[in-house]
Write a protein that binds this DNA or RNA. Structure first.
Lengths: 190, 190
DNA sequence: TTTACATGTTGAACTTGTTCAACTGTTTTC
DNA sequence: GAAAACAGTTGAACAAGTTCAACATGTAAA
């Protein structure tokens, strides 16, 4: 079944009954995105929260200097959304691009609200998911402060080898917060 | 009333009835912390979630090089907690130090769980709070990647003048992710 | 299959930020 | 009120990371 991965993902955090899970997953609709195409581009309002079934996405911002700054990569079994744009219905700063042919499950705002209202446990689920994400963002900032680019690079390819293998060096550099020329120099010495 | 600030803070995000608010706030107990004393030190398990009534705290990590890396400052009307340590009852990496004589409201884990179970709206509240926090952590990481230390410094003192005025330059440097000697040089030129 | 365009590499000069040490000025503390 | 401890400043040498330009390589497209 197509929703197995989603069910497995959510029940890791909160227990749901079979019927609850059915109602839950029915509100998601699947969408295919071809390599290099965008699920969201900056300026648009983010009308969905998404869960990756297949493939991989790069979520990035283009900053004032024109650099592509990658917030995170969302591979299979990851969530992707612009919370700010979705919650407040304001234009997004984010771009979400498929790195390969991908498939996602999406839920729109009304259905998400309906889900929250129908099952308080969904609030708990997203509360827990957000708090876990918070912890990893805090860690990432500290890592950026305490480690050199080389250390961060080695840590990244060790921790996420599957994602790293799908990326160009430019994209990895955009995640590490360095220029790709410098990443090239780092790789030479290591 | 001592709890007015807390009530105002939570009702910004979720509406509660008067009786709900009473039950909610009753589970918090207040604690005074003298300047330079610690609400939490690394190695301890974080047994509380806290809300600052008065004063200001610095939440920092000591990294492998021995540098004090500040995650954030929590002034009046802010929450402070080590989510990871609190949720999973594991030793904390964080230190929470009062920058001046301070007063906090604390809730322990059992009471927090009781609160979640009693009022599903509390799940919503902390879900929303966490998601908002997530957005600002994402922004902060991007800012760290796209701006120089000088730009980050000027941005910080403009955005948080009240907090900045309570801090030593060493503490500000620890938040910006630079050495205090360099901050001194930045200030000279600006 | 050739063209065109992206990605990756390298070097040289440059900017940003670090390190260490010495010095000065301020708070604590006894 | 003196001594100790800490915060801030400065300079010089250094390391980390950027910029720009030139070239090489790979890859998508016509």
């Amino acid at each position: 079944m197509i929703n197995d991965l989603l069910i497995k993902n959510i029940t890791k955090n909160v227990a749901f009954s079979k019927t609850e899970l059915e109602e839950f997953t029915q509100l998601f609709h699947s969408k295919s995105i071809k390599k290099k195409e965008f699920l969201l581009t900056q300026g648009e309002i983010c009308k969905f929260e998404g869960f990756v079934l297949e493939g991989c996405f790069r979520i990035f911002i283009i900053d004032k200097k024109g650099n592509e700054n990658t917030l995170y990569f969302a591979a299979k079994d990851w969530w992707l959304m612009d919370i700010d744009s979705f919650m407040n219905q304001i234009p997004s700063n984010l771009n979400m691009q498929a790195l390969e042919d991908s498939k996602v499950l999406l839920i729109n705002k009304q259905d998400k609200i309906a889900l929250y209202d129908r099952f308080p446990k969904v609030e708990k689920l997203f509360r827990i998911m957000s708090q876990k994400a918070l912890v990893s963002w805090q860690r990432r900032l500290i890592n950026n402060h305490s480690f050199t680019a080389k250390e961060r690079y080695l840590h990244f390819i060790e921790k996420y080898p599957d994602i790293a293998s799908k990326l160009t060096d430019k994209q990895i550099a955009g995640y590490l917060g360095i220029r790709h020329e410098f990443l090239s120099k780092i790789k030479r010495q290591s």
